[in-house]
Amino acid sequence: MSKPVIATTSLAGCFGCHMSFLDIDDRLLDLIELVEFNKSPIDDIKTFTKDCDIGLIEGGCCNTENIHLLKEFRKRCKILVSFGECAIMGGLPAMRNDISVKECLEEAYLSGPSTVNEDKILPNDEELPMILDRVYPCHEIVKMDYHLPGCPPTADMIWIVLHALILDVDIELPYEVIKYD
């Protein structure tokens, strides 16, 4: 039997959840015995080369590229996991959710105290993804199967959950591993 395949990505996140993933330390060695990685910053595979079993999504959706990627993950992965506070509720990027996009862009590109932008140009290249009206939790865009809270999720929780998903056993989390901060 071939090994289960894992894909990971960071949408509107800070890569902190991926750092916490690396924090499973020497258990990484056990993990690579158990699974194969496909599209992920961990092995630097940029595009899917096969369908995957587990997809870990860090970060919420703040622009059209995030949505595109998330939908692609949904198509390619059997199990999708919201990985961290931003994927679950938007996290710190969602602090802009009660501010209009116009106001956000103006603050960032025109009127910010350290901004030099003499031509008063807002990013408008058609190659650039469009910023969304607000930051969306992943489960508001596609169906997510599991949620791992935390900023970042604790390494122990990541390991327990991944291990259980890979071996197809019940997930049992001790009290200390669930943290929202």
């Binding site: 919201s82 679950i88 509720m89 489960h139 599991y146 949620h147 791992l148 809270p149 989390l173 009290y175 669930i178 943290k179 929202y180």
Partner: peptide, 8 residues
């Protein structure tokens, strides 16, 4: 939420 293990 921790005690009830609310994930989301």
């Amino acid at each position: 939420a921790y005690r009830f293990q609310i994930m989301a």
